[in-house]
Design a protein around this nucleic acid. Structure first.
Lengths: 201, 201, 201, 201
DNA sequence: GATGAATGAGTCTTCATTCAT
DNA sequence: GATGAATGAAGACTCATTCAT
């Protein structure tokens, strides 16, 4: 497993093919072709087809999580962090549609076995929101009656459903960034404490 | 091809098996066994494996949509309707976990061909929310700067992501109905107009 | 097995379906439908699908053999008998195309097991020619160096190949009776003894 | 998909298995076993089971047609060509019995779809006879009242029926080459013009 | 390391046949 | 006898994975 470059080429090819066909309808030979590599070569870099998906997740999603973490670090206000999260999430998706499709779609359908592997970076991603919520509650900006674990899923789900629609629809009616603003706005207003409301626009 | 009862038995068996294994890992023979029916019998009631999933959607999701429509009809206040929607949605899911898994998971991964068939009842369901939002805006209860088409996906996504977690997690930490209340509460507060806020608790 | 009428209805339906689809591509259910009979009813009159074909042969081919035998009986001149055979053979085929297709086509492809049953009436039919040839040789009208067993197959094959073409071709270019005359003429001239040639036109 | 040798091995195995069982009773797995190849390998060289038969025809029958064409080219006398044709036809069959069975039997029963593909070399083969007849007529050696298209089928049918018998019968009573001589003799005498008769033995 | 031809286990689907009504 | 819903054995074909070159 020397050639890091070939590893990447296969991952990128897999993203494309998985996005187009879905994991189960994707053929390993097609990924190989897309990567300009022989079928057998795939097995020098990955244990099996499942492993391609798992690696893809860990690596590509890992980058996104790291990216998002850094971006949120730049903002101090927890309520603003929520807006940033929404905007960035949908921006990532609009920039990497294929990857978004794979992450969004295949997270759910993959067999129970795979879920185990896939969930880790996913939960880490969700917990970025959770931390923001907790921080907001500690600072008195977010209502304390809201469960952070519920909010993280609600916000992620809202954004993600929007993203799925946007990725799959050909027409792209709603501007994706406008959607990000609206959704984050509803969450911010909905979650903010009475106290925060007085100081916020 | 008479026995309506057998059709249902197969659908129910399919819900269980699809929920457990996912569509692609489900074996037709396993559905047959679960339905106490011979493999071949399946093909007296369904064209092929895909057709089982498609029928399942149209029939079972259709019932849910109808149910929800009637339930929302009983409530007059649009903001209350949102709460009801949330509560009912998660209540349906907690009562029909297997079905929820199939609907939630397979909607996304099924091949593009199937999506065509599957989307119809799904969009109808989403549009129940959209109607409520529009109604709320017309009555001045919901901010007019929010796009109904964005809100319907945001609310559905929030609830659905919560549901997925709840269905898949073994421990069921968060009460699902408590989550429904929190999520609907955030959406109601987040979407309500300044005017409505004065009259609402 | 009382209803002789139903037995016939099934045989007739089978002739039609076998002719259209061939034995292996014919579905028992299709024969049943064509015969206006339930699938299961077929098995009250026939042991299995093979048995339909075997019975069909024995009965329908049997009738033809009997018919031909009588017709040949009316003619005294062996050489004329050959002409009659040719004309009648192709006339039967043009009148019962479906049956002809089944007899002609399925005789050959059916499994070895079936051949055993099917061959009997077929050989009987061939032997009608053989008898004529022998008779002709005894009367000095046909060359004695020709083997009757070879001639019977040659004449039958010549007529049958012509028939197959005629049955399968849509356009029916060559008149079938004209073909019968030409073929029998070639055989008569080819087989007749020097002696006979002097007395024949 | 390189190995031309493997393609041939499969074709040869198919000839054997089709001859023994017939196309419909032949199992792909049996052909694979006979060819010392895995089941799946067959599908690297052929699209499907039908395609094996079609390829078999085009390739093997093609060779025979070419062979016969060259052989006939060596003979100048049209009447002699007929004898040669008969002798060669039955000689080919006696040398390649399995192939003969497949060609002779499956030509007729194959589904209408396949016929399209199969007929081409077959018609080409028949037209070798047709050309000889026409040539004979032009040279005044064959009676002009005979339709070449009828004669080609008659001669082929006569030989083919003989061949079928010979191939299928265990005992091989009649010598096949003796039969070829008798049949061609009958056709030659039967078709020759009065003029030719004077000059011929 | 790279290749891609070969493998063969695994599955959907068909359809002749049965049998409860 | 007649029905036709139900059966389940059987087979064509696919495709992830291997391994000789």
């Amino acid at each position: 497993m020397k050639d890091e470059n070939k590893h990447q080429k296969i991952i990128q090819a897999a993203i494309k093919v998985f996005a187009e066909k879905g994991f189960y309808n994707a053929r390993v030979s097609e990924i190989a072709k897309e990567a300009n590599v022989a079928d057998g070569t795939i097995y020098l870099y990955f244990k099996n087809k499942d492993d391609i998906l798992i690696s893809l997740f860990e690596e590509e999603f890992g980058k996104i999580v790291e990216n998002m973490r850094q971006e949120l670090g730049k903002e101090k206000d927890p309520l603003e962090k929520i807006r940033r999260f929404a905007i960035m999430h949908l921006s990532i998706i609009s920039k990497q549609q294929h990857l978004a499709e794979v992450l969004g779609v295949e997270v759910r359908q993959s067999s129970k076995f795979m879920k185990e592997y896939i969930n880790k970076p996913f939960i880490e991603y969700l917990n970025l929101i959770r931390s923001v919520v907790i921080e907001g509650q500690e600072r008195g900006l977010i209502r304390k009656d809201l469960t952070p674990g519920v909010m993280k899923r609600a916000l992620f789900g809202a954004l993600d459903e929007m993203a799925r629609y946007w990725v799959l629809s050909a027409k792209k009616k709603h501007s994706i960034s406008e959607a990000a603003l609206q959704i984050s706005d509803v969450f911010i207003r909905g979650m903010m404490s009475e106290e925060a409301r007085k100081n916020h626009p």
